[in-house]
Write a protein that binds this DNA or RNA. Sequence first.
DNA 1: CTGAAAGCGCTAACAT
DNA 2: ATGTTAGCGCTTTCAG
Lengths: 337, 337
Amino acid sequence: MGVTIFDIAREANVSIATVSKVINNNGRISEKTRARVLEVIEKYNYTPNHLATALTGKHSYTLGLMMPNLANPFFGEIARSVESRARELGFSVIMCSTDYKKDQEEWYFTLFQKKRVDGVIIISGIEHQDAFLSKKLKTGIPIVLIARDIPTLPLNTICIDDFMGGYMAAQHLLSLGHRRLGIILEDIPVAWDRVNGFKKALEDAGLHLDENMIIAGEASVENGAAYTNRLLDAGNAPTAIFATNDFLAIGSIRAANERNLKVPDDLSVVGFDNTILATISTPPLTTVAQPMSLMGTTAVDLLVQEIRGEASNKQRIIMLPALVIRKSTAAVSAATI
Amino acid sequence: MGVTIFDIAREANVSIATVSKVINNNGRISEKTRARVLEVIEKYNYTPNHLATALTGKHSYTLGLMMPNLANPFFGEIARSVESRARELGFSVIMCSTDYKKDQEEWYFTLFQKKRVDGVIIISGIEHQDAFLSKKLKTGIPIVLIARDIPTLPLNTICIDDFMGGYMAAQHLLSLGHRRLGIILEDIPVAWDRVNGFKKALEDAGLHLDENMIIAGEASVENGAAYTNRLLDAGNAPTAIFATNDFLAIGSIRAANERNLKVPDDLSVVGFDNTILATISTPPLTTVAQPMSLMGTTAVDLLVQEIRGEASNKQRIIMLPALVIRKSTAAVSAATI
DNA sequence: CTGAAAGCGCTAACAT
DNA sequence: ATGTTAGCGCTTTCAG
């Protein structure tokens, strides 16, 4: 590669300062010279070197995005909207999957620092992030968290009201007449918030949930199926199951299918997230939706505000979940009662 | 931000050249000074500025990855493996979704040039890429294509044998006794290759496929369902359907379900890609698998080879698809014949 | 084994 | 309206 601002300047018979000015549209330049410079730029197919620009100027116009796994549709969708909004604002984004590994988080964060990204967005993440993040915060680099609230740290945060999400799921099931309920969840803090919301709704309805009807573990379709089987094999099997994410919910449906139980006729299932999985599931999954795209774009907006120094102060934005009713839930049938 | 190689040098009582050497592990440095420098670096939490490094050195150690839509599980999974392999080789990657829009491709490619990425990977892409790519090729920046073969251009390419994939799908269906077959496809070149492979298998078996049994359009679950309905409503309805990607196949299953046809008992469905959709589908989808992860990592390997100047010459790597048999296909039943 | 100095390509005062 | 010049933080000969 090789044509530089210098070559352009020489060819256009101006100084590099002039070229710089026409590129960045600042300073006063006569229309004539501007046109000439532009022409030469065009002719030589000149592309300004952003690395040099960044070295001089204040910003690199690059953002870092860190998440557990880009291939997971939930993260993928958020990543997509982050990238999209970033592009609109003139930033590009370096993406990283950490697989929940602490050393990879560390490695990537250092990378971000080396590349002098202007800001970092972290979706979800590993355990014990408090220490990690509080250290990173000290580097002064703007950080926004998505889907993980750390109440003890002054960080911009985007999350949803998980408690309410659980509450809504329960309300829906109750309204359909279900009384024997089961919960399968991923064993992480936010999922327990959802469970608590769910329980609260039951309480408010004067019901009580047997703790045996709650099973926690890692999130996967297989586990979802296995846990569901356990629930169904227990005495007093539930007529409806709340799964704290779509993967587990899909597993529930699969387990039911394999037992020749029909969803939703014999078993209702509510998921969480509203990823693409929910729409392609058979039957389509009733689920508590997180506004993934909105979360992504909002995160970028917050971050860029802070980068530009326009941020008044840190914010914690709590978005509201929404129940999306599809075909995996139905009124409890007389037969199953 | 702010501690530079200068500060380290001063603090360690050495020149910046020395510091540079210990950082990059080259040149001869006494153990004593190396230790001292390292200590100071540690103490000041110094992170070398990659932008400056890149400006001086030859490489930016950044790759560009362009695809239609990161949120699509097929692309997401490839992106994930690209990122993963890139990280292993010391590169970070800027990701972009183009939504099949020409101007966005243009914009992003320019971005890549400005950021001086060392190489670009393009997955799939828009129509009329030949002109676009041949122009970009002239910039001298290494490019690798995934899942799109452009025979007229000297480009490193990773793709699969689509024709064979279709052939395999047909063989499978034929071996199950199906004779009345239908095809629904996304209207893009690679999908037609799959269709041709499918037809060839029929020919080889002495069968002929009615052209009316082929429906092409945009890939979505909805369309998959709609096309399937059309096929099923036609006289002499098929007992098995080949869909050229998993989305369409899921749509087929849905349509069948809504008609109270059981998959696979009443209708067999074969998909293509083997994305996560295939595994979470109910029933799990029999599909022709593309080795997505392998394609991603291989693309990076090829690219980095070229970047390092180790590449002997351009390659076109054609990977072989593999039939993954799950639960959406079964022997044709007497009832449906 | 270590240091001095010349860039890499660009921006931003400051002159003219 | 345009040009001069001093960096930005680092790598890399080339001397010492």
